[in-house]
């Protein structure tokens, strides 16, 4: 018996609704985040990640209310990300019932923010979200760069140096998204995952590109991920969480199977 690898469904929310991949679905079916979170929790999700993609000032109050509602009904860990820029933002989310916050752009624009946040609230609740893209040419050694704004803006930061620095500043976990793979359904960038996992002591969550259950297995066994995050394969009922956990366990991965 050992520490289990985690499956983390991700709810991308806009103005209080789950929206990821709405192009595949009628918008009315996108889902109430509280309902969706509860359903995933009942199905055995190990954590929930809530990403606020509105992240505008008027949307914040909706987000806080949604986080409060989820935290009042779902008794597994909850991470909240999207628009976390100040210590006050973090305090607001933790008070609303989030267990961790995920910091992305604000870490790039002001790395010291991560240090202050970890000192104030503890590393255990500071997740640094990293969006990386491969920038090395064919034949060169693999090299990835940090991008912001959904992969549009290069930062000049080397991904491996960056995650080391973020952990040094107090990040307790890294949420790693391959911008090359996000939305492709062809699997994680395993070389990127492995390089990041080997570079830091803290847990790494792999994200971006999951299209089937074997991809989840590969993320853990080849990519060295401690947790796997996915949205669309669960939202659209292609696979259920128990199915994913069972499949991973059959490949020799320690999972939390008995949730009663």
């Amino acid at each position: 018996m050992a520490l289990a690898k985690r499956i983390i469904p991700c709810l991308d929310c806009d103005k209080g609704r789950v929206v990821k991949g709405v192009k595949f679905l009628d918008i009315r079916d996108a889902g109430d985040p509280v309902e969706v979170a509860r359903r995933y929790s009942d199905a055995g999700a190990d954590e929930i990640t809530f990403l606020d993609i509105t992240a505008s000032s008027e949307g914040r109050e909706t987000t806080v209310k949604t986080v409060e509602a989820i935290a009042s009904q779902v008794f597994i860990p909850l991470t909240v990300g999207g628009g976390i820029r100040t210590l006050d933002d973090i305090r607001t989310m933790l008070n609303a019932g989030a267990d961790k916050v995920s910091i992305n752009t604000a870490a790039v624009t002001n790395p010291e923010f991560v240090r202050e946040a970890a000192q104030r609230f503890g590393s255990q609740c500071i997740v640094v979200a990293v969006d990386a893209k491969k920038v090395s040419a064919g034949g060169e050694a693999d090299r990835w760069e940090i991008f912001t704004h959904g992969g549009r803006n290069p930062t000049g930061l080397d991904a491996i140096d960056w995650v080391r620095r973020m952990v040094d500043y107090g990040a307790g976990e890294i949420l790693l998204t391959s911008m090359d793979r996000d939305g492709t359904k062809i699997g994680f960038d395993l070389a990127l995952n492995r390089a990041v996992s080997d570079a830091v002591d803290v847990p790494v969550i792999a994200s971006g590109g999951v299209g089937n259950l074997q991809h989840l297995v590969d993320g853990v066994l080849e990519g060295g991920a401690d947790a796997v995050l996915a949205a669309s394969i669960f939202h659209f009922g292609e696979f259920s969480i128990p199915q994913a956990k069972q499949f991973m366990a059959e490949q020799g991965i320690t999972m939390r199977l008995d949730i009663s």
Binding site: A2, L3, D201, P203, V204, D226
Partner: peptide, 17 residues
């Protein structure tokens, strides 16, 4: 290290027995 000699991450984060 775990029983198989794999490096374990710190913090200890997640579901354990």
């Amino acid at each position: 290290l775990d029983a198989d000699g794999q490096r374990l991450k710190v913090p200890h984060m997640g579901w354990n027995c």
